[in-house]
Design a protein around this nucleic acid. Structure first.
Lengths: 205, 205, 205, 205
DNA sequence: ACATACGGGACGACCCGTTTAT
DNA sequence: ATAAACGGGTCGTCCCGTATGT
């Protein structure tokens, strides 16, 4: 009986990882419990031994996906040559392959507003994961910025929006959209919060 | 023609406008034909006299919503004091009231990835509407930019992402997210495509 | 106002004839009021100016179709060379072209049991029309039969069943089914009610 | 397999048998999935665990019903006194009780043309079942017939038509219709394919 | 304990027969 | 006679329990 002390844990993890993939690919509403389980190699009925509801799995899967996205970003930053952390993060996030394969990319870009309509508990967990991502990106913001977190937030928002526009765009425009988005993210990472040298007075007052 | 000249046209318009609102508020999957019709003061039975399918209404409603968003932007630009067009567009788009009320804001920000999962016909129509929005924003990009359309695209993507993050964010962080997003959009509008004065060499090569 | 005294009558007739065709082709349940009207070149709403319900049209259309079938049979009998009336009726009824086109054939063969499930009023009207067909066929039964009506009934039943089996049969068996049915109908027309010469004793006693 | 060996199989069989009954009674179009399930003591939600579609159940139910009809015929033949097989089959098929209760009788007589309008897959399966019935009836055709299968086909067609006419006929005529049909079927069984002794030359040439 | 097999309702889009306003 | 709308019905699917073993 103990011989598989963590069999349940393992099954649960499989479910979460499968869900993280399927949810990003199909959307939350379109991903049924049955198909989620089938894709995990299990059957319908086993679901509720692991989660109280579909919502519970959704929350955990998304948080997990975001954590993995964050980890990948951190790795990119660490591995990047000096001064190229930001660029490395951006070009990885906006990789053209992610456009056609949301299941391997950022859950915010893949699910966006569907997340905002989730119950509060789910939203709070997601919000937390997002903040971690922002903090990680902040680590890639060049020195000299007065507000690296604000800059990171701007970079992230810009990338999320870019990815979504790329996915909606006509195929022949995808590359241009990604390019413009990458340029934009770089600019944001370098300019926001800067003690205002040349951004001039224009911005806002 | 026995009814008042264009009663059907009028009902149809009501349906489209109601749908534009309900879809942005609840999401596409969650908005059933019955609830869409009820909210328009009709019953489900009348639906298929006006549209071939739910998808047909969805496409038209979203395109309409985007067109209205574009019109509002154009108006802001026209009414803004000289040199403040961009700021005006941005601060209107990222209005704090839009965070809690997606039904009055941009359909891309409200539906995002759900749009990318629609059938091709719908996607093409949406893509077209987006391009018009981008072109309109381009009209607010300050002179001197070598690539006003690219800058506009960047501004739009940034605003879309910002709005979504604001909607997912914890209430107490909403204002900050919006602020950072507005700053970012301004920077993008002023820097992208610029002949590169002070953005320095960093960007990408 | 009188100038089109029978415009309404004419429209009504169009509806009945169209229905007679469409009902046999698609079945009663599958033929919607809307499609019936459309195929008659009219719109939905005009229906209830002519008939109280779909059932009323169904009854009239089927009776009309059966009357026309009867008329055609009578014509065949009249035109047939002496002694070949029966054969003429049978080979016309079991024409191979009717197999693929129930809309031009006998309504009993085309609708069969659906008719038996109609409300009593409809059934009575149909029953009456059938009796007339049987009486007409009886006129083609060779002299010498003690019970020409019984023989006619048997011939008709046999043809109805044959046509249905032909329509369900695999294409390559259709011809054989029709042939066997025609032979059978001829035999019945010549033997039933006969004072029992060679039918022998087997039958029933 | 955790449930009693074949609980699902048993449920499925119940569904098929219930459907075989309800479909013959109400017609295919009128028998909804919900009512089919309710009559089997289940709810609609369980349906699609057993069948891919209503059509799949329809096909199986009809084939099953026809197989049972065939079995009953074979039993009648076997139990009949020598030389009375055919009469036994006929009088069982045309039993007056079947007129009011199509759910216990032949599916062809009960559904007829509705079957011809089914998708090809269904039709092929039905066609096969019909051929088996014909082959069984052929076993009851008296020796001496040159074409027992043709005779059997004719007998079957005649009975199908007779039963339908009986069901449509006015109550007071039902007995006569059945009687005429039974006589006819006997004649067919004894005459068709016969080397033509007394059927004379009339038939067809 | 852990997974399976099986079933339950409610709701999804879509369509139908019918009625009302014009 | 039309145009437009109405409810209720269709099949199919979803999320979720529960009975049943291993």
């Amino acid at each position: 009986m103990r011989y598989e002390a963590d069999r349940k844990q393992s099954t649960r993890m499989t479910m979460v990882e499968t869900a993280a993939r399927v949810l990003r690919r199909d959307g939350i509403a379109a991903a049924g419990v049955t198909s989620l389980m089938a894709e995990a190699g299990l059957t319908n009925g086993a679901f509720y031994a692991h989660f109280d509801s579909k919502e519970a799995l959704v929350a955990e899967a998304i948080v997990t996906a975001l954590a993995k996205t964050r980890t990948a970003m951190a790795a990119k930053i660490e591995q990047a040559p000096a001064g190229q952390s930001l660029q490395s993060v951006i070009s990885h996030y906006l990789d053209a392959r992610h456009v056609a394969h949301p299941e391997h990319g950022c859950a915010i870009a893949a699910l966006g507003p569907e997340l905002a309509r989730r119950p509060e508990a789910t939203r709070l967990a997601i919000d937390d994961a997002i903040e971690r991502i922002v903090a990680t990106i902040a680590g890639a913001i060049p020195e000299g910025s007065g507000d690296p977190v604000g800059a990171a937030r701007a970079v992230f928002a810009s990338m999320v929006g870019t990815m979504q526009l790329a996915r909606t765009a006509h195929p022949r425009r995808i590359a241009a959209v990604l390019q413009a988005g990458a340029d934009a993210a770089m600019v944001l990472g370098q300019s926001i919060g800067r003690p205002a040298a040349c951004t001039g007075g224009g911005a806002r007052e």
